[in-house]
Simulated assay, not measured.
Amino acid sequence: MIEDVSLHVSGDSGASLRIPAWRIDAGRPGPRVHLQAGVHADEIAGMLVLHELLPRLRRAAERGLLSGSVTLVPQANPFGLGQFRQGRILGRHHEASARNFNRGFPAAVSARGVPDSLTHWQRQLVALAASADIVLDLHTDDEALPYLYLHQGFWPAGRDLVAALGAELAIIWEGDGDGAFEEAVIAPWQAEQRFAGRLAATVELRGQGDVSDALARQDADGLYAFLCARGVIAEAPPIAEWQGLAVPMGCMETLFAPVSGVLVFERELGAWLQAGERFARIIARPGEADSEVILRAPQAGLMLSRYRDRLIPQGAIAAKFTGSAPSSTWTGGALDP
């Protein structure tokens, strides 16, 4: 059975906004799954993945292969979807308040007081996912390899998800952050220390430009195989043995642009660099040779992601790397900036 469980929230103007959502319920016991995309509304890849996955799940239910239930929210953020400026969507931050859409989620959906429109939206999303055993929040980076964030309570049990998606890296976090959706969902689980049979993850599906039918089918295949492995679907597609890296959040290196200018990468995504090895340069004032600033890897590691545009402002994240020792710039938190 497929049920429309769409949410309705009040927009900044007071007009009602609909968040399309569907729940496929087998009507028999099994894991409860919540899949969503587009909390950052300019991160499109996950929307296409869930568009591809929904009819597959419906067919599995019709064939009697589904146990439990799966809820899908392909476009979770109606605020960000309305923020077009000069032909480009600005979907990472709420324009009216400058808040990052994936920060400040309330851990309790029953908090007192009348919430503002954005907080009401956050509470609605958390409430929709609250009864699930498996919660996946699909995102993308600027330009990146596929990778995931997982709380340490789900590791190494979460290796099946990382392997099914063919991700290069699992970033393992602990402690408190700044209220990402994943944090709000697992807060009750952490309080009870009940992680068995559960999983929550923030999934980074490569970069913002990696939107295609081929990639969406590949990622939908991976999610389907993972759901099979977790007993949601009574099939058994193979999952290759995972050969990637698991790195504590504190050992990740985030490189910020020291100046503004033309950004030229000299190494590709997935490259392994030694400490001090150059990977890019910024030409602050084209035409002046002495204005070039060299960017180097702080420690040995894999280039995981990099800035998408080739004119970078000072202070923007130029690249992210894995590391084997704590980063000198890490200040805590569940997710990076």
Rank of each mutant, 00 (worst) to 15 (best):
G261M: 03
V232K: 05
A234G: 01
I239C: 02
A257H: 08
Q243W: 00
L263Y: 08
G270F: 00
L269T: 08
P238H: 13
A229Y: 01
A246R: 09
A271G: 01
E235Q: 15
P248R: 10
A234H: 05
Y224D: 04
A246P: 01
M249P: 00
P237W: 01
F256A: 13
P237D: 09
L269N: 07
I233S: 03
L263K: 05
I233K: 06
L245D: 02
A229T: 06
E235M: 10
L263M: 07
W272Y: 12
E241P: 12
V259K: 11
V232A: 12
V247N: 02
T254W: 10
L227A: 06
A240F: 01
V247F: 06
F256P: 09
A234F: 00
G250W: 05
E268W: 08
V232P: 02
E253M: 07
A271T: 09
G250D: 15
L227Q: 04
M252L: 13
W272P: 01
G250V: 12
E268Q: 15
P238F: 03
A234Q: 11
P238Y: 10
M249T: 14
A271L: 00
L255E: 11
V262C: 10
L263R: 04
E268G: 12
W272C: 09
V232G: 08
S260H: 13
P248E: 08
W272S: 12
L273Y: 07
A257M: 04
A225H: 05
V247I: 14
A234R: 11
E235D: 15
P237V: 05
I239P: 00
L245V: 00
A229K: 10
L269F: 05
L269K: 06
E235G: 10
A240R: 14
F226H: 13
E235C: 11
A246K: 04
A234V: 02
P248K: 08
L263E: 04
W242K: 03
A236C: 10
A229H: 13
E266S: 12
V232W: 07
P248Q: 11
E253Q: 15
L263S: 07
L227T: 04
A225D: 09
A246N: 05
C251Q: 15
I233P: 02
A229Q: 11
G244E: 09
P258S: 03
I233V: 14
R230K: 14
G244D: 07
E266V: 06
L269A: 04
A257D: 06
L223H: 07
R230H: 05
W272L: 13
C251R: 14
L255V: 15
L245H: 01
L273W: 09
W242I: 02
G244W: 03
M249R: 15
G231V: 06
L245Y: 01
A240Q: 13
V232D: 08
